[in-house]
Nucleic acid binder design. Structure first.
Lengths: 71, 71
DNA sequence: TTTATATGTAAAGTTAACTTGACATTATGT
DNA sequence: ACATAATGTCAAGTTAACTTTACATATAAA
């Protein structure tokens, strides 16, 4: 796990976008729900490829979903 | 390795930015030169964290360096 | 009360990102 | 001719992202 400098707004965005559930987002992004849970908890940061798919699921750019360093 | 949907402009950007060498970029991004070589060759796509550090090394946003799908 | 949906958590396994180390090639300069 | 810097490539090892499975809790609806 270590300390992660990458954060995200996934949880917040899920509720702003049709109240998307973890499972729905996972399906759209092509990962398991556990992965979404881990990302929301900040356990680790995603691969760049997954980051793109998640941003795409929200119709947003990478940097609207993920940030480096403190918010 | 697999097929990667994520591409980058690293090699091109290196030459546009002070003709930065692979080693210099690696140092700035905090990885080994082998990692830069692999990324330029498209062997794999970086972690999101590394993607941020590389973009930062160029003073660019993530999506100015990396793209999803065909260019 | 029972059923279904959404979320939380945990642990073991797989895979891909990244490291380490080593050597080859090419070009530039002395 | 020799040295040095930049790049290419290969192989084995480590670690973190991601999967799979499983069970627990909470809420709301029938």
């Amino acid at each position: 796990m270590g300390q992660h400098l990458v954060g995200n707004h996934i949880r917040k965005l899920r509720f702003n976008h049709d109240e998307m559930t973890q499972q729905q987002l996972a399906d759209k992004a092509g990962v398991t729900r556990q992965t979404i849970v881990a990302l929301e908890k900040g356990n680790y940061s995603p691969s760049l490829e997954l980051a793109f798919r998640i941003a795409r699921a929200f119709g947003l750019s990478l940097e609207e979903v993920f940030f480096y360093g403190e918010e």
